[in-house]
Design a protein around this nucleic acid. Structure first.
Lengths: 204, 204
DNA sequence: CTCGGAACGGAGCGCTCCGTTCCGTATCAC
DNA sequence: GTGATACGGAACGGAGCGCTCCGTTCCGAG
């Protein structure tokens, strides 16, 4: 426990760099890119995370937790609709989706599953409140919202060619589609936690 | 011009297999997977298309042409809204987006650009008609629709974990968002052909 | 039936790229 | 100054891919 100053600072840098790089390049981004972005050598990175997978898991866990926090922040907004849209915007801006990243499957731990469940509950509260206020369509659940987030987050490969202005229009269309009242009811049963759980089993 | 029977049949098989495999696995799918799916050896495939890129280009061209045809089919529908939604459904079902696939950039030929321009014009007619009828929000263009299609087509990696029923819900939300009248106007300027053209320049 | 050659299948080559390791060097506490 | 610790990044091993090459198959003319 000697050189904590360097160590801790680097720890943060690595995590931040990993978030950026994975967001830009996807899960296949080389570890070297993360190290370079963090201004850190590979050795340093590998001392913290014995394998790339460990780094990805840690990142996923933090993303999920952060998603829950954003939902709570939305609940703090007195306006149910504005609180909801602010949550969506915040998640998209931060590259959050509350779900595993696409790409090669990697094992999802029970810890992540638990965190996700907790975060999802927060999102559900936000959704339910907006529905009760009559501003959000009533035939969706928090899972629909999260699924939508993963779709809107977009493929990393396209980030270069999808300027923020275009994403803004897409998001505008989707938000109008979420707003109550709505013309046509959605097909199929509402997704539940069991639905999500089943999807994620691919990753275990 | 002797063995046309085998040759022509295989030609179709390869194209069909390529479409399926690229849709399932993305642009990084190994050529061997396409050959296997087509029930054809690599040699056969490479005799038709000297490089993987050539195959991808041919496929892209056909997809674009088919997108235009779907738009025309939508125009044939007397109901402007139903014609429009049928077009969207058809494109999604067929894995069409009228745009280059994500993944490694590959050169877009002028031929493809021309085909795309023509197809886009058809989509625009479909869009304009629905707008004139007052059933489609007026602050979008065909380019918004195509951009939306590319987003909704989804990442290949997720196709396994995104059952059709979930995609149906997402699509339902988006279609409600596209339907007139709408609560909130979209941000930013309407995308034009120039906008798209600029995006695609990354691929040339 | 025979035979020439077009078309085929798929093993293998060469190369790229990536996760991971290892060790000489720089940095810190004392 | 000195030992311990952390660091950087070149080097390693191997997986995976595009593409080639060649022995084999099979169509169709004579």
């Amino acid at each position: 426990m000697t050189r904590r100053s360097d160590a801790l600072r680097n720890d943060d840098r690595v995590l931040a760099a990993a978030r950026e790089v994975f967001l830009e390049q996807g899960a296949d981004a080389p570890v070297s890119a993360i190290a370079a972005r963090a201004g850190v050598g590979m050795g340093t990175l590998y001392r913290r995370y014995p394998a790339k997978e460990d780094l990805m898991r840690e990142l996923l866990k933090r993303n999920i937790v952060q998603t829950g926090e954003e939902a709570q922040r939305g609940l703090a907004d007195p306006d149910p609709w504005h609180g909801f849209t602010a949550f969506v915007h915040a998640c998209l801006d931060a590259g959050l989706s509350g779900a595993p990243s696409p790409g090669k499957a990697f094992p999802v731990t029970d810890e992540i599953l638990a965190a996700s469940r907790a975060a999802r509950a927060q999102v559900q509260r936000l959704v339910t409140r907006a529905q009760s206020a009559g501003v959000l369509r009533s035939d969706i659940t928090a899972h629909d919202v999260v699924l939508l987030l993963t779709e809107l987050r977009g493929r990393p490969e396209l980030d270069g060619m999808r300027p923020a202005t275009l994403r803004g229009r897409t998001l505008g269309i989707v938000l109008d589609g979420l707003r109550a009242p709505n013309a046509t009811p959605l097909p199929g049963p509402k997704p539940t936690w069991a639905t999500i759980r089943k999807l994620w089993d691919n990753y275990r």
